[in-house]
Simulated scan of single mutants.
Amino acid sequence: MSVGSVTNLVVDQSDEQQSLRENVSALVGKFGRKYFQEVVRKGEKPDELWKALGDAGYLGVHISEENGGGGGGLADLAIVIEETSAAGCPVFMIVISPAICGTLLDSHGSPEQKAAWLPGIASGELKMAFAITEPDAGSNTHRITTTATPTDTGWTVTGQKYWTSGIDEADAVLVVARSAEADATGRHPLSLFIVPKDAPGLSFTPIDSALMMPEKQFTVFFDDVQVSHSAVVGGAGGGLKTVFAALNPERVAAASVANGIARYAIDRGAAYARDRTVWDVPIGTHQGVSHPLAKAHIDLQMARLITMRAAEIYDAGGDAGDTANMAKYAAGESAIAALDHAIQIHGGNGLSNEYGLTDLWFVARMFRTAPVSKEMILNHVASHSLGLPKSY
């Protein structure tokens, strides 16, 4: 039995989910780590893999059937994301387009917006990026300065976003912007807009990033971009509530990528420890090798369980905030520890791209910082779970 095998621990609640997991694993396994490494090395996109996932219905497994999806839930999408990553192909665009944008539009989009976007997002034929982070706002969404000013025909969007992933391959971007006028509390209500990538006044420049992944990161500029009234998602001024509705799926999806990376790393590390022989015994015989890997495996399984639990709570209509945040924290810590141990077990070979580990380092490390930092998660747990005074 493989260390990374899904049979190690029961995390699925139905035979259908187990079948989904096995089928996604088989499909992505036909592509594998070498394929993904070559795509990244060439600066290309995993278009063949994306199309295969879309054609099989996996990108839209969580989207309602009436909107072109499979009618499943976030737990099903989490399985798709984890298995894709566990096969050595962490496609972060699944987190952005189907998980964040698809979930948000399915729950808050107008009938026209759903009809225009969701079938394409579900099939993979359309992609959406998500723009919320700004250089001077960080995690404090209330401090964003990108502004939407009403006009006779709609809105004018002006401002700048930062670390926007994958806008170069997207057809449109969901943009969080504030109203020009403050409300009675002194805050500027937020709204969410669908902005076509080719809209006049929208431009973007790449960020020189250490992330070895197909999705590039960008600074995005909105220079008096004109959008219609129909571009607003969830109603003008309702952006904060709408955006927060997508945060828990984002955290679950990000945790699923991290869990998949951890599974891949532990699987590779254990295989090498079984096969590599020094002084007539496999190196896995030594507790200095086996114990850190065993601990990484335990931490991974706990992260997987809480991730699936967060997805189940969300699918049941419950408040998944605490659980989703803890899942993302646990998965981020597990992924970087598992990858670090796997690299160390390989010795010098761990630093060779041939073994498919070292080029995952910054991708795994990203999950300590994004989409929400470990410090902000600890702040959330301290105040929400423990009832401690807020520190900010």
Rank of each mutant, 00 (worst) to 15 (best):
S179D: 09
A137N: 11
C101V: 04
T158G: 03
A56F: 00
T146G: 05
T7C: 02
D152C: 02
I81R: 08
E66T: 02
E48T: 00
Q17N: 05
S179H: 13
H286P: 02
S64C: 00
Q344F: 09
T323W: 01
G102D: 04
A137G: 14
G317Q: 03
V3F: 02
R268M: 10
V220G: 10
G109F: 03
G238D: 14
G317P: 04
A236T: 14
K161E: 05
A294S: 06
G32H: 09
G43M: 09
A56L: 00
G201N: 06
G120Y: 14
G88Y: 14
L105K: 08
G60S: 02
F204Q: 08
S97G: 00
L386V: 07
Y162I: 05
P150W: 12
M212D: 13
V6E: 07
Y264G: 08
T84V: 08
A131R: 14
N23D: 09
V173W: 10
N23P: 00
G57I: 05
I81L: 06
G239L: 15
L59G: 01
D208T: 07
A56Q: 00
W155P: 05
S290P: 05
L351N: 12
W155T: 07
A382E: 13
V175E: 08
D47Q: 14
L240I: 07
A137R: 11
G387P: 11
S334T: 11
A330W: 07
S256T: 09
I298L: 08
D12I: 01
D223C: 03
E354C: 00
E48H: 01
L351G: 11
D168A: 14
G88R: 07
G387S: 07
V257G: 03
